[in-house]
């Protein structure tokens, strides 16, 4: 494990990707569609990377992303509308609200050992319940859309008329979440999550309090979803109970699974490839037959599940290793050391 070496090949590769990601918007500055697309990809990438902690490492098929995202959005949005509190603060408060909510939900769920399919169903139902609550809650808008004000400066109210600032904020958030994800992966918490994802009884008799570990994972994940929710409200410019979306929640879980469970870069990879591919399909097929792009997208997902059940990341990893070996042979005339991750 070369995780201590800061400038190993993997980190250099990530740095190159980051620089590229930071430069790309400059080329597409005037292309609003490309900017929307890239911002959307980043939203999914951040959420799916955070999902990796609870879904990939801890092995809990969480489908409640929308509940945490919606709570964050409504917290940050309402704070701005009612008390003119800047979303810069509001989104973190939104993250905190989501985190506390996750604690309230997770404590009994994990305490009663609700897991596997039952956890998936419960968490999915949570999104719908939250949507209904917010549809009836007139104090924060009820079923009507509530628009975020722009009367204060764009920087203060985080309401820009271009997507570029959002793109960069999300990019920073993504980097932070990835670093954090990696830290957790090789921490005591990370090992306990990975192990309990494989065999919960076996890990408990080794001294792991699985309820506490899962709760921590869920809270970290909800915190990130809440922050993204705050940004989400600013990007869309309004609040609506449709933010509590079961569809989007499921999609995040799909990205996490298709990317490669427990692999930090997996969900990112899946988000970049699949979300942009889906949007490309929507743009190119959407005009003709309604919903055709979704059918094509679904077929692609099924093919991945069939032929690459461990996810996209291992595929890329092995390709990367082959390249490494190939170039190593060119340079030294023998296979290069293959780094383990």
């Amino acid at each position: 494990m070369n995780s201590k070496r800061l400038l190993n090949q993997r980190n250099l590769l990530m740095l190159a990707a980051l620089i590229l990601a930071a430069l790309v918007p400059l080329a597409f500055r005037s292309d609003q569609y490309a900017m929307i697309l890239m911002t959307t990809v980043l939203i999914y990438a951040v959420l799916a990377t955070a999902w990796n902690i609870i879904g990939g490492m801890a092995g809990q098929l969480d489908l409640a992303m929308g509940a945490y995202l919606g709570l964050g959005a409504f917290t940050a949005g309402t704070l701005l509308i009612r008390w003119s509190i800047t979303p810069w603060i509001g989104m973190f408060l939104g993250g905190l609200v989501s985190m506390l909510f996750a604690m309230l939900i997770g404590f009994p769920l994990f305490g009663f050992k609700i897991k596997e399919l039952w956890y998936a169903l419960t968490s999915s139902a949570l999104v719908t319940v939250m949507q209904v609550i917010f549809l009836m809650w007139n104090g924060v808008g009820g079923p009507t859309e509530v628009y975020l004000p722009t009367r204060i400066s764009p920087l203060y109210s985080l309401r820009f008329n271009t997507y570029m600032p959002y793109y960069y904020i999300l990019l920073v958030l993504l980097v932070v979440v990835i670093i954090f994800n990696n830290r957790i992966r090789y921490s005591k918490l990370g090992y306990s999550l990975l192990a309990l994802g494989e065999d919960e009884d076996a890990v408990e008799v080794l001294g792991v309090n699985s309820q506490a570990s899962k709760l921590k994972a869920l809270m970290i994940y909800a915190f990130v979803c809440g922050i993204v929710g705050g940004l989400y409200a600013c990007i869309y410019g309004y609040l609506h109970p449709s933010f509590f979306s079961t569809n989007m929640s499921t999609e995040i879980a799909i990205l996490g699974i298709v990317g490669g469970l427990g692999i930090t870069y997996g969900p990112l990879l899946a988000a970049v490839l699949l979300v942009s591919f889906r949007e490309y399909l929507r743009a190119s097929l959407g005009g003709g037959m309604e919903g055709l792009y979704l059918a094509v997208y679904a077929v692609i997902l099924i093919l991945i599940a069939l032929f690459q059940p461990r996810g996209l990341a291992p595929l890329v990893n092995s390709g990367y290793r082959k390249l490494q070996t190939f170039f190593g042979e060119l340079r030294h005339g023998k296979p290069a050391d293959v780094e383990s991750h």
């Binding site: 990975l194 192990a195 065999d199 008799v205 080794l206």
Partner: peptide, 23 residues
């Protein structure tokens, strides 16, 4: 709870061993 039992010095090797396969 099981985790408290371990801290008291009680180890349990479950049926079939059940090591973590992907570790």
């Amino acid at each position: 709870t099981p985790d408290q039992a371990v801290r008291k010095g009680l180890a349990f090797v479950p049926e079939g061993g059940r090591p973590f396969p992907n570790m």
